[in-house]
Amino acid sequence: MVKFERFGGASGVIAVAAIALQFLIAGTAPPEIQSLIHNRMRWEWTTMLRIVGSLGIIWFTAGLAARLRRLGSRPASAASVVLGAGILWGTVWLLSALFNSAAISMSAVGDPAGVGLLAVLGADSVLTLTPALSVAFLAATGAAVLASPTFPRRYGYMTLCSAGFRLVLAIVDWYGSASLAMRIMDLTLLWVVVTAFHLLGATRPAAPATEA
């Protein structure tokens, strides 16, 4: 079981590396049709890195949720929300890869309106949905950590504070003129790395929680 959790930690580091690399290659703005035609391999690599990142996130989430799941008789609802939020976040990256791949295919057909739609969906899907999902992901992780002695308590408080901070950033991003979605993404990826190293450091199974 610990091996699975440590593997989840390694997957989290790989996911962050793949996602950071695709941001370096593709940037954050939706591609234009000329770029998709003339730099096709650049966008194909972006698709592949998003798929790798997505699978890494899902595997990381499975390892984290397994670690957080309490072994007592009470319902482990916070750990369930961690699992659900992480799987949805991974799925968003998969969808982003799909939209990107479809935009590349449509650019060969020469349909600028269709390419424009797919390119915006490919780039914006992760930036629009990461704030909401990361708030749920972090808040649930913080609650589960404080309910079960699996990670240091300071990590649990830090995670809860980070969830609150992201919520504020997300509301400012939605309402104000400042574009903070990428800052939320950076912070979320940083949190994944910190959590992944905690998982990599797991040497014994999580202790069962004391009964109520």
């Binding site: 319902p75 609802s77 369930s80 929300v81 949905l129 909401a132 649930a140």
Partner: peptide
């Protein structure tokens, strides 16, 4: 976006009770 996130949170609690 808010409603979807709250549905996710609620489902964690509902599924916990059902489990």
């Amino acid at each position: 976006l808010l409603g979807g996130t709250l549905v996710l949170w609620f489902m964690g609690t509902l599924a916990g009770r059902l489990r």
